[in-house]
Amino acid sequence: MAHSHDHHNGGHVHHHGDHPHTYSQDPSAHNARMQSDDAYREGAVKQVEHDLDYYQVRMMALMNVLREKGLLTTDEMRRAVEEIYGQSPAIGSRIIARAWVDEGFKERLLADADAACGEMGVDTTGINRVVALENTDTTRYMVVCTLCSCYPRQILGQPPTWYKSFPYRSKAVTDPRGTLKDMGFDAPDDVELIVIDSNADCRYLIIPQRPAGTEDWTEAQLFQLVTRDSMIGVGDPLTPEQLEEAVQASGQAT
């Protein structure tokens, strides 16, 4: 495929406007506010259900037309959907963990990312060109597609909702440091922050910095530290402490 034109929500965007909260000591005002909140929530849920129905029906109609015209079979469509859902950020995490432990691999990844992905058994033929960029102490990259939602799906899976949102797409290029701050990350003042607008044929993979305290970690251990956001450039990988906390939290949950 030459180009992924993924324009979402085309002409079907709903805006609910402001929903101001007024605070009052008066219990009747409080009750009125609660009722209005309930009504608001109910309306919002109805809207989401309507949207889901709308897209579901439109998608099924399109699939039926494709089937009837003999352009695609049910099985081909099922396999395509399964392939999309089979893509996940774990593919990228595997590549980053390898780059952290194998300097030669990292050099090849930076020089020719498609070939390096191929070495790892990751097929990037759906992407015209994969470009890997390495964060350092002095340079940090962050990726945005201001035009739509171009994203290295074969490596990172489907893009997160915020990546496709207008606020991220506009603020990332007009106030990148503020954007990172919104997402809970402070870029150091002296670092060179490079915003990559993924607007054409390339898809980008950020190689985040290997966390401190992982010098004797194996590739499989390091894999667990690589977050999706760190490969988009809007955050750092987990620290060993954060991973430990996450493991304990999930242990308590089960």
Binding site: V173, T174, D175, P176, R177, D189, E192, L193, I194, V195, I196, D197, S198, N199, A200, D201, C202
Partner: peptide, 17 residues
């Protein structure tokens, strides 16, 4: 790129043209 101060003086934007 902008009339306002969008970033630090060393900050960049790279784009494919």
């Amino acid at each position: 790129l902008w009339d306002h101060e969008a970033g630090k003086k060393q900050d960049k934007l790279y784009i494919e043209i």
